[in-house]
Write a protein that binds this DNA or RNA. Structure first.
Lengths: 220, 220
DNA sequence: CGTGATTCACGAACATAGTTCTACTAAAGG
DNA sequence: CCTTTAGTAGAACTATGTTCGTGAATCACG
């Protein structure tokens, strides 16, 4: 209400805040220029003095989220746990802002904050005695998986909110559908339908990351 | 089956053909209802007698691509190689149609052909002596990674075609940028810039899949 | 204190997207 | 031959990213 000269100047920070608010509330799909502008109480064209295109917002979101990640001091004794912890932080940020991992998948990590996280993860792997080239490749692989995982999870969550279809299938229903498949072409699926649908999201997340990390043996 | 009831009746098959043609030519981003309709020589509304929404096209694409995957007879002796081979097929299909892996990430695998591929992969893992629950989880993890990998690769390729930005950075340029980072906050990145940018796409792909597969030990 | 220049906000408008409405046309059925 | 029905297609509606032109508020400088 401060009827100051320039009431509330639009800044990149405020745009990022508004964008995050939109994503947190209605998901990444609802992130439109007009929506962000509406949160800021203005029109769509007002943003283009601060961003060059909508893709810039992706960078802003990735930067903001990356800035929230706390990196531990690399410890050769507990490096596997440290790795899992940081990636879990990233996952939780992604899940908190449904669909935002698409922004992470869409932009090259040119953002400084994103590079900071990468440096931190890289340092943990190196402290664990992993060879630099292996560490680099593993890093990309795990980052890719975490983004894809978060994306898939957010899509599942999104379907829960769209009750027009019966996509909100329970696990029992899913098992029933799998066992209803033709027996001649889907023998294993029918037989192990329970296992195929088992496990919660976090369970599978931890499982996969452990699967990768446990295969890394310090070569030093 | 009348030979020529209507001149060129629009069918789901023809829609799928046209959609694949568009994606192969100009990528998944260029896949619009109007574009597909134009390929079929008609207007956008004509498609809606055969599809309920644009999302249906995703299912059609995934189905068609899945149908092209050839599944081997599960062999307990070479199951790791078989697994790698099938996933390589999937990757190549994804890369052939840039960005189409987004369709795979966006839709629940309710498609029958996609389920066929899943059954085949699952059978390979079971033949390898992997426990059903582990096999199911690994399957999802690897599928997720392959989709994300293909998506990232297609985005990189896409940037090569947009020469308005200098995104077409060579590896040397990339190394130079990484070593230009502040030394105090990015010591490891600067030191191992070469390793961070090393490896071609296929190299990293094979590396990651091997990383996962090699950690699986038959428990039988 | 005044004045010019510059920055920046904002409404309107343009192009393109998915989707719907409605009229039309051509093949079946009696 | 007429009726019915299903598929086709053009126009239009809404929503999106983006651009243009206008006007106002701020700062530099006399």
């Amino acid at each position: 209400m401060a009827s100051s000269p320039r009431r509330d100047p639009i800044t990149v920070t405020r745009i990022t805040d508004a964008a995050l608010e939109v994503v947190a509330t209605d998901g990444y799909d609802a992130l439109t220029i007009r929506r962000v502008a509406a949160v800021l109480g203005t029109g769509p064209s007002s943003l283009y003095a601060h961003i060059v295109s909508k893709d810039d917002i992706d960078d802003l979101l990735v930067g903001r989220l990356s800035a929230q990640i706390v990196l531990p001091e690399p410890d050769p004794a507990t490096w596997r746990g440290q790795l899992l912890d940081v990636f879990t932080q990233i996952r939780d940020r992604y899940l908190q802002y449904p669909g935002v991992s698409r922004a992470a998948l869409a932009t090259v990590p040119t953002n400084l904050e994103a590079l900071r996280v990468r440096e931190g993860l890289f340092a943990i792997l190196l402290a664990g005695g992993i060879e630099p080239r292996t560490a680099a490749w593993v890093l990309d692989a795990m980052s890719l998986y975490v983004s894809a995982y978060a994306l898939e999870q957010s899509l599942v969550q999104q379907r829960r909110k769209h009750p027009d279809q019966e996509w909100v299938v329970s696990r029992d229903e899913l098992v029933r559908r799998l066992t209803a498949l033709p027996a001649d072409t889907f023998p294993q699926t029918r037989l192990h339908a329970a296992e195929l649908t088992s496990g919660t999201g976090p369970d599978r997340f931890a499982f996969t990351l452990a699967l990768i990390v446990d295969n890394l043996c310090p070569s030093a």
